[in-house]
Write a protein that binds this DNA or RNA. Sequence first.
RNA 1: GGGCGCUUAGCUCAGUUGGUUCAGAGCACUUGGUUUACACCCAAGGGGUCGGGGGUUCGAAUCCCUCAGCGCCCACCA
Length: 870
Amino acid sequence: MGIAKSFDAKKIESKWYQFWNENKYFNSKPNDKLPYTIVIPPPNVTGILHMGHMLNNTIQDILIRKARLQGFNACWVPGTDHASIATEAKVVEKLKNDGIDKKDITRDEFINYAWDWTEKHGGLILEQLKKLGCSCDWDRTKFTLDKEMTESVIKVFVNLYEKGLIYRGHRMVNWDPQAKTTLSNEEVIYEEEQTKIFYIKYKISNSSKTISVATTRPETIFGDTAIAVNPDDDRYLNLKGKKAIIPIINKEIPIITDQYVDPEFGTGCLKVTPAHSENDKIIGDKHKLEIVDILNDDGTLNEFALHYNGKDRFLVRIEILEELRQLGSFIKEEIYLTKIGKSERTKCVIEPKLSDQWFLKMEKISKPALKAVIDDKVKFFPKKFKNTYKNWMENIRDWNISRQLWWGHQIPVYYYSSDKKDFVVAENIEKAVIKARKKSGDYKLDQKDLIQESDVLDTWFSSWLWPISVFDGINNPDNEDFNYYYPTNDLVTGPDILFFWVARMIVSGYEFKNKEPFTSVYFTGLVRDKTGRKMSKQLGNSPDALKLIEDFGADSVRVGLLLSAPAGNDLLFDESLCQQGKNFSNKIWNSYRLVKSWDVKDSKDQNLASIAAIEWFESKLSSKLIEIDDHFKKYRISDALMTIYKLVWEDYCSWYLEIVKPSFGKPIDIKTFNQTLLFLEKCLTILHPFMPFISEEIWSGIKKEGDKPLIIKNWPKHNKVDDSVLNNFDHISKLITNIRKYRNEKGISYKEKIELSSEKNQLKSELKSVVFKLANSELIDDILQINKNAESLIIDSKEYFINNLLGQKNDLKKIEEDLKYNKGFLKSIQSKLNNKKFMDNAPKIVVENEKKKEEDTRAKIKILEIKLKK
RNA sequence: GGGCGCUUAGCUCAGUUGGUUCAGAGCACUUGGUUUACACCCAAGGGGUCGGGGGUUCGAAUCCCUCAGCGCCCACCA
């Protein structure tokens, strides 16, 4: 036999991927079919494939492949994201290793290095997606820094500025002293840490009294511009209006009152440092306090800190305590648990810092996006994220869109004088000159006089346009692609970027196109290890994605990921799941091997068992197709897979094939054979979205000349489900199970039977043969001939046993028990009807009904219930 | 502090409107089985007071209250 005993994924994967790709089956162009569109959540251009990507993209590929089979014009747009901070950090580090400091090179030089880096490492992740089997339209691959993509971003910035939605503000932002850039709130991670809180004494001016405060950050006393107490705090009322003296620098600051101060906390006195705390800034603004910024961009202190000038903030924290101690200003320290904000990317402790930033007003433009989700115009799966979204959108803050980096879209703001107020916003420098001349009245201005804003835009400011800009919907609003593919259908992403990305895409969809960007969002869970920890580089608990594919095969890894990934729940990943996928691959492979091994005979004598089995499997398949469809509608992809898994393994292999399988060495009739191939074909088709490689490989082995490849075949349509056929089979299979159980318990083994048959005991020999046959499902046609009605079938076969085979009274009861099935149903009705309370409360009419037809309870009781309520 | 969610078999999870089909699935486990597609397999089986307590109801895994534990998001007290 030419077919290998085990399935070897490695041998066929690249062959089929190449075949699909070269024949353009992944590609899509507008036509008269209905589109089904997904845009990929663009991974970081220099990223490498991790488990999260694998899960996410497997699901997208399943959706796309299924849509393709169902006759949609399926289009999956791939691409990558320039990821300002992450990429810039990597480039800076690389340059550092080469002995180059970013400070010593020009912006253009740096950008060149960054492009080199991107070209060298970029797109690797897309190649890895191909290994997974992802059927993206690679001709449409986009990168957020592509020319047209950049033009879209700039155009949108100008547009929003002209609408008055973008402004420059002097605001408290999260400052990353290591990357020397701003971070959005979402990019800051708060970690609980045990630190210390210090009590420090300030002298009161012209008095012998002192006032003390509690602080975790003693080094910021140089930036203090007031001390605040609660106006209702009797302890300190006498100090109101007096001045306190900051130790070391001996600067006088006012003592003020503000409701914000919690008298219960610390000493009840708050040192106000408007430059380094958001809340202090609010108090400062209210009381018109001076703002003293004591930090440099790199986290060292500046000249306001006197002799600490140039020293790092954490070093100063230690040193200043010693000095305060010597001055007698230090009171005590306590252990204190607090949350410290750190940069998601650099892990550096962030610093609240006042600086010039560009902001986008969100309140107004987010309204339609909020409504769309509430009204289910954009549906979230699972639904619970709707609430999270609502909560965030209702309390939305302005979006800080500027970043102090070089790698990204440079903000199209052009200054024409040294005064920061003198600027224009324009798509390019030519237009900027014209605008600047007009605005300033100075018509001698030329390009050289303009200086472009050095900041770049937040990366998400380009990706929020992704579903629009990949179809060039900003630059060419009426182009064919955009009109055809937008809005897209499904978005598959992680809940961690619900606010970063998903919410903002919906906002931009309505703002620029007045239409939702997608109709459904499927949130995958996070991939964790089997003990529930997040997968991370530090823990080293993340398996090498490519190695998994290498070891188990792409299909098996896809199955493994999905088997335990219900929507929205985190997935506890374990390699054994891939092994399960691999076992399944092998099972399918061997069913193919079996079918291929048969000797086909062109005969008319198809046996009854085969006819019955075919009739049954047809109904079974149809009922499962309906089930699978339902699972897909609810985005229960794992359940859909499990349904198929059981259909193939249990129904097709364990029951159907075992019944139609001819005895060893015997041929199979052609009718049954063809039907069996047809069933296999249908199974392969519904399997294809989940396991594209093996399904295509097997199909290629059974298809006829001229048949289309599986990837573009038609999803099977379900026929009528004949319940009586299913029920009959159910009864028979239960009967067989009971017989097997009986045999098992009696220890009637295969070997034993051989021995028995050598004896000349007629009775025992027959017992052997019947039990053997039933257990192997080969007696099914005999049973079917006895009676198709299940109830009498059991009785018949029982009698058959009793009268002809066993003849031993001791075993009769046991067998009777074993062969009983499903009596619980009738019993439960009985108990319900016997329930006195129930009967007393039940309207008479129902009692009559019940008498008429006792076995049909559910509907009756249901009616009863409704009537009772009335 | 505000919001959302979870707790069902050893593990990971299903369980629509309360009612036969509801106490389930997969994996794991136990027992038996290898010349006849597959040991990456076949067959059979054992596992649960549905987190605790209370309530509504003729009837609760399902609805209500409460307690305990866990998780996520947002805002944060120096």
